[in-house]
Amino acid sequence: MKNIILLFALNIICFNSYTQDIEPFEITEAWLSQIKSLAPVKTTVAIDGKKNILIFSLHTGYEHWNIPHTEAVLTIIGEKANAFTFILSKDINEFKKEKLQKYDAIILNNTCSKRDFRNLFYDVYSEDKNLTQQQAFDLSKDLENNLLDYVESGKGLMLMHGAIVMQNKSDSFGKMVGGSFDYHPKQQPIKVKLVDPSHPLVASFNRQGFTHVDEPYFFMDEYYNYNFRPLLYMDANDLDGLREKVTESTRYIAWIKRYGTGRIFYSSPSHNPQSFENKEMLQFLLDGMQYVVGDLECDDSPFGLRE
């Protein structure tokens, strides 16, 4: 009995020490230096000139505290590998046609929208008292269509964690990115597993998964068409706090896909900056950037409907 009590106490201590690591923190020079030391020194695939990437970090709904951390990490990864030039913005005017053409790819950084309409562009336009609600919706639809056309014509789009919520009630956006956000249980340690250890975009994980504390995202709508190439997954049976019992325990949390001639990369893992303190994850994100700009060729054929 004493051994059981001791083991239980040790488990509590271990879990508490794990969850303590996810406490929010301000960006410091020491933390940036740590990320720089872990970031890859070169790209996986040789580049032909630097690509221009917009990192768009506006949120109108839930504010993920890691937004500035994610922005800093992505910038460090791309610049250390000498592969990308970044523009950082929270201005929706960047999604006007003439401005989009400056970029080879866009990274949406936790661009969560308000719950009412789940439409970030509308959220911004609705604050203009000179516009009617219909005018605000029309203008927001124009920007969304610009983004859809931009990717479909051959450009890249990378979505970090909550970015999938940006236009969450739009069927067109959901079809482009591979699904819509449904819900997530509480933050907890997640055992992340590789769908295909031989796939080039998960090569950084050395054929093994990893465990980190994150929000375990569940998806709906277009997700169930599996019109993407999954990269990472979690087992729902390993999780606490599910909203309902699941019949399909394998849940994909990172994938790539084509939209027209453009490329999409989505990574749900990245809610906490502590997850970036992992050189394998940094390499994964760099490879993802190389994929969306067209440098890294790999199998991105749809997984397809499952029986």
Rank of each mutant, 00 (worst) to 15 (best):
residue 4 I to W: 00
residue 8 F to H: 10
residue 10 L to G: 02
residue 22 I to C: 07
residue 24 P to I: 11
residue 30 A to R: 09
residue 31 W to N: 09
residue 32 L to W: 00
residue 36 K to Q: 14
residue 36 K to D: 14
residue 38 L to A: 01
residue 38 L to D: 04
residue 42 K to G: 08
residue 47 I to H: 10
residue 48 D to W: 00
residue 50 K to C: 03
residue 52 N to P: 05
residue 52 N to R: 14
residue 54 L to M: 07
residue 55 I to H: 03
residue 56 F to K: 13
residue 61 G to E: 14
residue 66 N to S: 15
residue 76 I to K: 06
residue 79 E to H: 00
residue 82 N to T: 13
residue 86 F to K: 06
residue 86 F to C: 01
residue 88 L to R: 12
residue 97 K to R: 14
residue 97 K to S: 14
residue 98 E to L: 12
residue 98 E to W: 12
residue 99 K to G: 03
residue 103 Y to I: 04
residue 103 Y to G: 02
residue 109 N to F: 11
residue 114 K to L: 13
residue 114 K to A: 02
residue 117 F to N: 15
residue 117 F to P: 00
residue 120 L to Q: 13
residue 122 Y to Q: 09
residue 129 K to T: 13
residue 131 L to C: 01
residue 134 Q to G: 01
residue 139 L to D: 00
residue 140 S to R: 08
residue 142 D to L: 15
residue 143 L to V: 07
residue 143 L to D: 06
residue 146 N to E: 06
residue 155 K to C: 11
residue 158 M to D: 09
residue 159 L to C: 13
residue 165 V to K: 00
residue 167 Q to C: 03
residue 170 S to C: 10
residue 171 D to G: 08
residue 173 F to A: 10
residue 177 V to W: 06
residue 179 G to E: 02
residue 182 D to Y: 11
residue 184 H to K: 13
residue 184 H to Q: 12
residue 184 H to T: 13
residue 195 V to F: 11
residue 195 V to Y: 09
residue 196 D to I: 03
residue 197 P to G: 12
residue 201 L to P: 01
residue 206 N to Y: 08
residue 211 T to I: 12
residue 215 E to L: 05
residue 216 P to F: 01
residue 218 F to H: 10
residue 220 M to N: 11
residue 222 E to K: 03
residue 224 Y to K: 00
residue 225 N to P: 00
residue 229 R to E: 15
residue 230 P to S: 11
residue 232 L to Y: 08
residue 233 Y to V: 07
residue 235 D to P: 06
residue 236 A to R: 08
residue 239 L to C: 03
residue 240 D to N: 10
residue 244 E to K: 11
residue 246 V to T: 14
residue 247 T to V: 09
residue 249 S to W: 03
residue 252 Y to S: 04
residue 253 I to M: 06
residue 260 G to R: 01
residue 261 T to E: 14
residue 261 T to S: 14
residue 263 R to L: 10
residue 264 I to W: 04
residue 265 F to C: 05
residue 267 S to Y: 04
residue 272 N to L: 13
residue 272 N to F: 15
residue 272 N to S: 12
residue 280 E to P: 05
residue 281 M to T: 01
residue 282 L to R: 00
residue 286 L to A: 13
residue 287 D to Y: 10
residue 291 Y to I: 07
residue 294 G to L: 05
residue 296 L to R: 01
residue 298 C to M: 12
residue 304 G to Y: 09
residue 304 G to T: 07
residue 306 R to H: 01
